[in-house]
Design a protein around this nucleic acid. Structure first.
Lengths: 232, 232
DNA sequence: CGTTCGATTGATGTCAGTCAACCCGAGTGG
DNA sequence: CCACTCGGGTTGACTGACATCAATCGAACG
C-alpha cells in the first residue's frame, strides 16, 4: 500500500474536501478545519483498501478513482455489493457502530482517498450536525440501490439484469455523443457477472445478443456504445 | 383505513415513544414533547399502509405488529424488501430527501403505528442530533440486511436461501424451548418465496426436505420448530 | 514471438420454475 | 350436519434457462 503524504498545494487540498458531498454545507473556514484532519492515500489498480473482517479506525472518502466493495462466499464466489467512485465514502459502519469491516474493498483503478480518523470525525459530526444529515442522505441512496438490486435479483432473469446494469453504468459513467452513449465500463465481464449474480459466460452471451440486435456496440473490452437506450 | 385516535392513557403513550429506539436517548421531559406530536393509527391484516409512488408527509414508526415492504414488477411478481416490526420506522426517505414512496407497505397482522408529521420530525431532528445518530444506526443495520440479501441472491441456490431465511426468522421471532426454537412465521410460503426470490413450490419442497431430515418440524402453516439450528 | 489473462463460443447437464392436479382446513350457507 | 367453496399448501412431471466445463480466440505486454 502506498501511503505517502500529499504533495499538492494547500488549495488543492481544500478543493478535495469541498468536492465531497458530506462536507458541502461547510463554509471556507470550516472546510479548513476538516482539511487539517485529512490524510490522503493512493492505491493502484488491484490494491486492497479494506479486508473483510479487519478493524478500521478511519472514514474513507474517495477523491478520485473507483473501487469495488465485495464479499467472497466460502465456495469462492465473489459478490460485488457496491461500486464507489468520487465523493462516495465507506467505513462508516466501523465508526458509528463499533463493528469490523463487512466487505472487502479493492481499487478498480488508480484511486486517491481522503481518510479521517474516527475520533476526529466523531468530533466533526457533533459540531456540524448537517454532516449527519448528509450522511443519512447518502445512506438512503445506497439503500435505494440495494433495494433495486434485491428486486432485480429476486424477480428478473439474466437478460434483464444485464440490460439493467448497462443502464446503470450509462447513467453513472456514460458520456453522450452523436453515435450514442459512450460508456467506460468499470468492471470486466467477470466483474459485471459478480455484480449481478450470473456467470461470466452469460454476460458475454447476452451482450453479444444486444450487439447483434444493434442496441449496443462493443469497443474492445472496456468500452460500450449504447445506440438505443430505450431498448434496454 | 382505521384512523381513530388513541384511547389509551397518557402514560402508555409515553411508553410507546420510549420503546422506539430512535427516541431512546431522550429524557422524560423530551419524550413528553415527542408524545404530543405523535398520531397513532391502527391497521388490520392486509391493509395497505403505504402505496408505492404515493406522497408521504409523516414518519411512521411501528409500535406493535408486523408489516412487509414490497414492490410489484410489471409482470405481476412481488418482491418483499423488508419485514418491519416493533421499533422499526419507514417513510424516512420521503421526509429527508423529497421523494415519493419507493415501495408498498402492507400490514401482516394487526399493527399499531405512531406517525410524526414531517415538519415536527425535522424540528426534533434539529433539536436533538442524537436522533440523527440513531437513524444512521438503523439505516446501517438495514443496509446490512440488504447487503446480505444481495450476496445471498447473487451466490446461493434455493436450498441455501431457504435455510438462511429460516435462520433469520429464528433470530428475529424465535422462542427457545426444550424441543427447539419455536418460530412463528411472519409470512406464508408464498411470502417467503417472494422474500428470497424463488417460486413458492420450491419453498414447500425445500422445507419438506428439512423436515424429512429432522432438522425442522412444521406445525400447521404458520409455525416451525427448529430442532437442529446448526444444520441450517 | 511467446505468454498470459480475459473474453468468447459451443456442448452438456441440472436446478428450479412452470403447469396442473390434488389436498386440506376454515368458513359459509342451506 | 353436510355440501360447497375458497385460499393456501403440497406434489409430480416436464422443460427451459443458465451454470458448468472445455476449447479457442485475441489483445496486451514483456
Amino acid at each position: 500500500m502506498n501511503n505517502h503524504s500529499c504533495n499538492c498545494e494547500r488549495c488543492q487540498h481544500k478543493i478535495c474536501a469541498k468536492r465531497v458531498p458530506i462536507f458541502s454545507t461547510l463554509n471556507a473556514e470550516e472546510i479548513n478545519r476538516v482539511v487539517n484532519l485529512i490524510i490522503r492515500k493512493r492505491y493502484s489498480r488491484g490494491e486492497m483498501i479494506i479486508l473483510e473482517g479487519s478493524h478500521l479506525d478511519s472514514l474513507i472518502i474517495i477523491n478520485s478513482g473507483k473501487v469495488k466493495a465485495f464479499r467472497n462466499t466460502f465456495e469462492g464466489k465473489e459478490q460485488i455489493i457496491y461500486i464507489f467512485s468520487q465523493g462516495d465514502f465507506f467505513g462508516e459502519k466501523n465508526l458509528l457502530i463499533n463493528q469490523n469491516a463487512q466487505y472487502n474493498v479493492e481499487a478498480l483503478e488508480v484511486t486517491h482517498v481522503c481518510t479521517i480518523k474516527k475520533d476526529d470525525f466523531k468530533k466533526l459530526l457533533r459540531e456540524y450536525p448537517e454532516i449527519g444529515l448528509k450522511i443519512i442522505e447518502e445512506l438512503c441512496s445506497r439503500l435505494e440501490r440495494l433495494e433495486n438490486a434485491v428486486e432485480s435479483m429476486g424477480t428478473k432473469n439474466a437478460e434483464e439484469r444485464v440490460n439493467e446494469v448497462l443502464l446503470e453504468f450509462a447513467r453513472k459513467y456514460g458520456k453522450e455523443s452523436q453515435n450514442g452513449i459512450i460508456v467506460e465500463l468499470p468492471l470486466s465481464r467477470e466483474g459485471i457477472a459478480n455484480y449481478i449474480g450470473v456467470a461470466r459466460e452469460t454476460v458475454s452471451r447476452k451482450m453479444n445478443l444486444l450487439q447483434e440486435e444493434g442496441i449496443i456496440e462493443m469497443v474492445g473490452n472496456k468500452k460500450v456504445i449504447i445506440r438505443n437506450i430505450d431498448a434496454l
